[in-house]
Design a protein around this nucleic acid. Structure first.
Length: 507
RNA sequence: GGCCCCAUAGUCUAGCGGUUAGGACGUUGCCCUCUCACGGCAGUAACACGGGUUCGAAUCCCGUUGGGGCUGCCA
């Protein structure tokens, strides 16, 4: 069997968006499923709109998603001469022709056709120019493009689409004599794409639905150049919540933006692969699962609506599955320059460990431990009225401070294994350290817990009635990790300081 | 307008001639509980419509409606 070779061919006229990422993932998964190769080609023939910034974004985003290409990246802008030579060949074989019509003239033709209720196609003025006329115009340096001469007289173009598993039939009368080389000598998409795909021996072209109507044009070029045809698979579009094609209007659409907002690449990959593709009732797919199970026949024919809720669910799923040191690292990677980095110590670790089940993004996770990062807490007035504190509470806080004072210092010693974790590559060793860290935390928290419970019962208090005031005093928030965990993370001294400050604030 | 494609709950989907139409997200209720989550349990909600074909249709065919795409010297 022939090796499967696929490609992703974005144009650097925008950031890598969700739709492009899915197409890339499909192509990657398909090739890898068959042990084939996946290539990346930058289609930068639109010199007006292509930028290096977008190009870098696309490459980086793909890398972040783990969609790794084989071989070197191809740039169409480096291959203009190749396209030109093929255009020359088509000209010589009279499968293409020079067109000297001015843009103004074409615009006029167009409006006349539309006014008469006709299809706005090229009128064919230059389709059958005689040699002398062409020579004359060329010698005069008259601006021109090269058009492909579409065979008509009732002919039609047929190709099989692998997603629908059926033939798509388009009458050639519907297809214009499209431009293959622009006035400035740069080839157009439909021309360059065919030459590159053919020359790089791409076997399967998996791309968006928006290319179906281009396919007959491209097949004509394949045939006119005697290239071997690849197979085509057109994936339906991704729609926004309003049913319209997904665009910037719908909020975050670039991969990069999702990264910044604290999504994990695993979550995005998993979400994207399930958007339009299924494998029975399975929902969770790692990259290797994707490669293992991916196929074209399980791709849905209909358009899919992008749903952030489900992405968030997947993201929280993957956040929960990561170890907390790793999460700290990821949070620091995406933090704003103005934010201070999270420390890789055992206290931060314990908080992340506790909060990671309560958030859906890394950004939220960072925010959730904000009370720990802040030196000085702000207490919300509204929250105070809600608490409705009395003299009894002030008394309780006093007692609580006594309890804190009585805690042994050494339980708060920082037994951070961070040094050992820096720059080591042995996963099982890391796992050991991780487990040890976790059990240290658990042991300590247990000891705080039993001491605290004894303190409560001695005074005939219950957790239920006292938890909220402690929570607010120590964090300034109504929602926080469990009390014992806060005490552990903050440490004795900070807890006492915060209780003192809070007591002063309320009295 | 013309051409092409699509149609199972709010969303992603399973189904491929005979199912109590399955799963997941969301949502609702309950349990757990120091808050919020997590977790567990239970519930909610769908075959767009109309004709055929067939003993039998979500499934096959035709039409209607609705949606999407293309109709560039963008890709």
């Amino acid at each position: 069997m022939q090796e499967v070779r696929t490609r992703f061919a974005p144009s650097p006229t925008g950031f890598l968006h969700i739709g492009g990422a899915r197409t890339a993932l499909f192509n990657y998964a398909y090739a890898k499923h068959f042990g084939g190769q996946f290539f990346l080609r930058i289609e930068d023939t639109d010199v007006e709109r292509s930028t290096k910034e977008y190009e870098a974004d696309i490459i980086e985003s793909l890398k972040w998603l783990g969609i790794n290409h084989d071989g070197e990246i191809t740039y169409q802008s480096n291959r203009i001469d190749i396209y030109k030579s093929y255009a020359k060949r088509l000209l010589k074989e009279e499968k293409a022709y020079y067109c000297f019509c001015s843009k103004e003239q074409l615009e006029e033709d167009r409006s006349v056709l539309i006014a008469n209720g006709k299809k706005p196609m090229y009128v064919g003025r230059c389709r059958n120019l005689d040699h002398c006329e062409i020579e004359k115009n060329l010698n005069l340096d008259k601006p021109h493009v090269i058009r492909f001469k579409v065979e008509r007289n009732g002919k039609s173009s047929v190709f099989k689409d692998l997603i629908r598993n059926q033939y798509v039939n388009i009458n050639n009368d519907e297809i214009d004599d499209f431009v293959i080389v622009r006035e400035d000598g740069i080839p157009t998409y439909n021309f360059a794409v065919v030459i590159d795909d053919a020359l790089s021996e791409i076997t399967h072209i998996i791309r968006g639905d928006d290319h179906v109507s281009n396919t007959p044009k491209q097949i004509m070029i394949y045939e006119s150049l005697c290239f071997k045809l690849p197979q085509f698979a057109h994936v339906s579009m991704i729609l926004g919540s309003d049913g319209k094609r997904l665009s910037k209007r719908h909020g975050a659409t670039s991969v990069n933006q999702y990264k910044k907002e604290g999504f994990l690449p695993e979550a995005l990959d998993n979400y994207l692969i399930r958007l339009g593709w299924s494998h029975g009732n399975d929902e969770i797919f790692s990259i290797s699962d994707i490669i293992k199970f991916f196929d074209l026949k399980s791709i849905s024919k209909s358009a899919a609506t992008f749903n952030t809720e489900k992405l968030l669910w997947l993201n929280s799923h993957y956040i929960k599955s990561k170890d907390s040191y790793f999460l700290i690292r990821l949070i620091n990677e995406i933090k704003e320059d103005s934010e201070k980095p999270l420390e890789k110590d055992i206290r931060t670790f314990s908080l992340i460990e506790s909060m990671k089940t309560r958030v859906k993004t890394l950004a939220e996770l960072r925010k959730a431990v904000g009370f720990y990062l802040e030196e000085e807490l702000e207490y919300d007035r509204g929250l105070m009225t809600e608490l409705n504190l009395t003299g009894k509470d002030i008394h309780f806080l006093k007692e609580f401070k006594v309890f804190l004072n009585g805690l042994e210092e050494n339980i708060f010693e920082d037994r951070s294994p961070k040094k050992e974790l820096e720059g080591i590559g042995n996963p099982s060793y890391m796992q050991d350290i991780m487990n040890e860290t976790l059990s240290t935390i658990n042991r300590t928290i247990e000891s705080i817990k039993s001491g605290f419970n004894a303190f409560l019962s001695k005074n005939n208090w219950t957790m239920k009635e006292k938890a909220m005031i402690i929570r607010v005093a120590l964090t300034g928030e109504k929602v926080s990790p469990p009390i014992y965990e806060i005490i552990f993370a903050l440490g004795k001294e900070k807890c006492i300081k915060r209780i003192e400050k809070f007591s002063k604030f309320i009295s």
